[in-house]
Design a protein around this nucleic acid. Structure first.
Lengths: 340, 340
DNA sequence: GCGAAGACTGTTATCGCTAACATAAAACGT
DNA sequence: ACGTTTTATGTTAGCGATAACAGTCTTCGC
């Protein structure tokens, strides 16, 4: 960036600042600032001169200085648990894209654990870097508590964090999704539906379990098993479940676990879907290519992320809503389910 | 300002600043600053008093102000393509964790496309928010170019961006990984090994393809097919490949494609591994539960991310290395491969 | 033709913090 | 005991931008 070694006058060592541009353009610093922030207030010719100077010096406004005086940073934070999981990763991605369109940058703070303390700490970390707002993706019961003792002056939006929240939130209607999944199996003629749920205290896991229970009302409700979202836990629990010959239909709380479970059943000699039908949840991109292709419930994480950003934007410009938006999941029928 | 109508003395409307804390503790602002930045330079009793005041006022240093004067922001940026993909997501996650341990925050900028322009633009976006350094995760040929015309004053580290880079870099030795995968198949008695590669111009895809070629030297090298990393493309290409009865072993450039390919083969009546052996790449957490459990090459993304951060840290403190570190991948043999 | 409104541009005062230097108090060596 | 170092704290001066106000110079209306 330093001008060429040819001997040009402005062999800058330090980056150019407003004053430098002003000097070169023969105007005051304020005018340069205006050109950058409210161009219409500056006469076109001056503007052109300033812009040329900006160009020539490769001037970039100093973010810290601007943010110090305006009180806004143009950065928003996302607090999330494991961003390696498909759901959080996709949501984060959507948020980032939406943010970019509005000239916001995204700062991430991932959490070691999901306790109210760690959530507060994550938000705090972001706050220290003076983000303008925070989106929390913590699908855990602890989120509600963690969010409660947050400073009220910081706009916060929650994603998938349960009912009793003090902040605006977006969530997928997992109850409905689970009902759809379970009904689908019931309609296929299964007497009842078993359930492999996610870990305790995860909002999504609870909601799906409740939906499943709800859809099963009036029938025998088998005791649910719980995994930890991993394919491996699905496999382990699948092994147990496969020993019960009465099982003909299983609703699994996410796709990886469904994958593991199907493997366990196959290894136990029970064919999917001939002997037992399986429905997953998430519709990860691979689900269509599992063996057999998995019937599952699709969540639209992109929408989720976009909505979350919208809500945050609203809150940031002042609308003090505690709006709650819901995204509907959709059943995708493939080949892991069949008529009994 | 304006103490509240209630009459309480410190009914703050605005957040407390250094001066407020100083006042309460009966010291100068500078002392407070020292307590926060170099506690050992302050007498324990004063320190305690200051800390108490900080506590009482809930004081949080203003990031912009600090950063304005120190010239450092404590934020680093990560430019990445699709952070939804397992690799980038895991790497990002590892970077974030390493960064946190060193009190850095991570800003992300994901890219719409992988062109030199968009890379430069992504870095730029981060630079405007004055990040202290940038890690670029763009496993594409364009990365090298995109990085070349970067301002030299900004510490940049590349992850997986190929050989001819102008900046420090970390990469997995995909060539070696591919060689291992291919040799494994060869040692199992297969005459040759087919290859389903990733999209053209992706560094990883190229390296793996070269490794495969290398391991095959002296034998017939079948024309490789190319997918787009998705399970779906694996399935499509798998359908084509399954029509060729001479195929007995396939090295697939990533796990999702391997999943799709195995499905295609199965649907074509060719059993894996009895009729055809398949090796994947990545070792995604689900790979062990594919049907059959996938033999694959594990990349340690966590190490990759950590190393990238280390390198960046080095560069940021001034060491002007253009060090290049390599992470070795590891073959994980499961059940998708068998003796011919 | 002259005051008033409007259009541009400039001046000044911060924003909240820390580097660098200055000072005061305590500790020390001989 | 006295200058000298060390230790603890305070003072001053910005970092680089923008808000708010203050001038100029035009442009108009009547």
């Amino acid at each position: 960036m330093t001008t060429s070694p040819g001997g040009e006058p402005a062999e800058r060592t330090k980056a150019a600042v407003l004053e430098d541009v002003a000097g070169l353009a023969g105007v005051s610093a304020m005018t340069v600032s205006r050109v950058l922030n409210a161009p219409e207030k500056v006469r076109p010719e001056t503007r052109a001169r300033v812009l040329a100077a900006v160009q020539e010096l490769g001037y970039r406004p100093n973010f810290a200085a601007r943010s110090l005086v305006t009180g806004r940073s143009g950065v928003l934070g996302v607090v999330s648990f494991d961003t390696t999981l498909y759901g959080p990763a996709s949501t984060l991605y959507a948020i980032e894209r939406a943010a970019r369109e509005h000239d916001y940058l995204v700062n991430i703070a991932s959490l070691e654990a999901m306790t109210r303390r760690s959530i507060a700490e994550g938000v705090d970390r972001l706050r220290q870097q003076s983000v303008d707002g925070v989106i929390v993706i913590v699908p855990h019961e602890s989120a509600a508590d963690g969010l409660r003792d947050l400073p009220p002056d910081l706009p916060v939006v929650d994603v998938g964090g349960g009912e009793r929240l003090s902040v605006p939130a977006v969530a997928v209607d997992h109850h409905a999704g689970a009902v759809r999944a379970t009904r689908h199996l019931l309609e296929l003629g299964h007497e009842t539906v078993h359930h492999l749920s996610g870990p305790a205290n995860w909002i999504d896991a609870n909601n799906r379990m409740q939906g499943w229970r709800h859809a099963l009302r009036g029938r025998e409700v088998p005791p649910p098993l719980a995994g930890d979202w991993s394919a491996n836990s699905g496999y382990e629990q699948g092994k147990r479940l496969s020993r019960d010959p009465s099982v003909t239909a299983v609703f699994v709380a996410n796709d990886p676990m469904a994958l593991g479970l199907m493997r366990a059943f196959r290894e136990a000699g029970r064919r999917v879907p001939e002997d037992v039908s399986v429905v997953g949840y998430d519709d990860v991109p691979e689900a269509a290519h599992f063996w057999p292709p998995l019937t599952t419930v699709r969540q639209n994480f992109a929408t989720l992320g976009r909505q979350a950003f919208q809500l945050l934007l609203n809150r940031m410009v002042g609308h003090d809503t505690s709006e709650r938006r819901t995204v509907e999941p959709e059943l995708v029928v493939r080949e892991s389910t069949s008529r009994r």
